[in-house]
Design a protein around this nucleic acid. Structure first.
Lengths: 114, 114
DNA sequence: TTGACATATTCCCATATCGGCATACGATGA
DNA sequence: TCATCGTATGCCGATATGGGAATATGTCAA
C-alpha cells in the first residue's frame, strides 16, 4: 500500500481543468470527439482520454452515430459535489448568517418561555 | 513539459477524501492538529500535510495558541467550486426544468407579439 | 475492396502525490 | 537548562497522472 485511493470519483474527475472545460462545452449539447477537440483546442487523444475518465464516473454518456460518437452531459454525476459543497454555503452567505441569528433568537426565546 | 498544471486550486484540494473529512471536521469549530488526528484516526504528519495543502488554497486559517496551532475553516475558498457546480443544477433539478419550460413559453409569446 | 475518416488505446516520459518514518523546530514547564 | 509536547518538514518508495506520438479499431464512401 502506498498511495491513497484515488477512487475515480466525481471530485477527482472534476479536479482536472481540461475536464471541466469539456463538461462546460457539453452544456451546449451533444458533441463529437473531434468537435470538442477543435472547440477546446486539444488533441484528439487528449479529448478521448478525458472523456474516458468522465465516462467512468458517469458524468457523460455516449451515443453512436455512424463513425462519430456523440458525448452528452450527465449532470447527475456532479450532484454529490454540489451536495457536499452546499453544506459550506452557510459559512460565507450573508443570507445564511442572518438566518442563523434568527435561529439563535428563537432559541433564546424558547429558554425564556420554559 | 509533461504533466498538466496541477495548479493547487480548491478543486484539487478537495479531490482528496481525507481533506474533505478534515474540512468537515472543522465545520465544528477550531481544532488543533492532534485533535484532528485523533478525531479522524490519521497520523499527525498526515494531518499536517493535508492542512498544508488546504492552507495553500486558503481553505483553512491558522492561529497560534501556545504550542498548539488551531486551524479554522475558511469556506470562502470553496465558493468557486460551488459556483461552478451550481451551473449544472439546472440539468438535474425538476424545479429548474419547470423554470426552463416557462421561459420557453415566454419566448414563444414574444415571437407572437412581434 | 480500398482508402479516408473518427475514435480509442498503448507506450513512454516526466512529474506529482500519498503514506510512513525519522527528524527538526519551537514553545512550555519543571 | 533540559525534557517533553505539538507541529512541520524531509526523504523514500510505490503509484497515479497527463501529454505526445504512434497505432489499432471501426465505419463509411467510392
Amino acid at each position: 500500500m502506498a498511495r491513497a485511493a484515488t477512487t475515480a470519483d466525481a471530485f477527482n474527475a472534476v479536479a482536472e481543468p481540461q475536464r471541466r472545460r469539456i463538461l462546460d462545452a457539453l452544456t451546449g449539447g451533444e458533441r463529437s470527439v473531434t468537435a470538442l477537440a477543435e472547440e477546446l483546442e486539444l488533441t484528439q487523444p487528449q479529448v478521448s482520454k478525458h472523456l474516458r475518465v468522465l465516462r467512468d464516473v458517469g458524468a457523460v454518456d455516449v451515443r453512436e452515430d455512424g463513425r462519430h460518437r456523440l458525448y452528452r452531459l450527465n449532470a447527475e454525476a456532479l450532484r454529490p459535489i454540489h451536495d457536499w459543497v452546499r453544506r459550506y454555503e452557510r459559512f460565507w452567505s450573508e443570507r445564511f448568517a442572518r438566518l442563523d441569528s434568527v435561529i439563535e433568537d428563537l432559541k433564546r426565546q424558547d429558554h425564556r418561555d420554559e
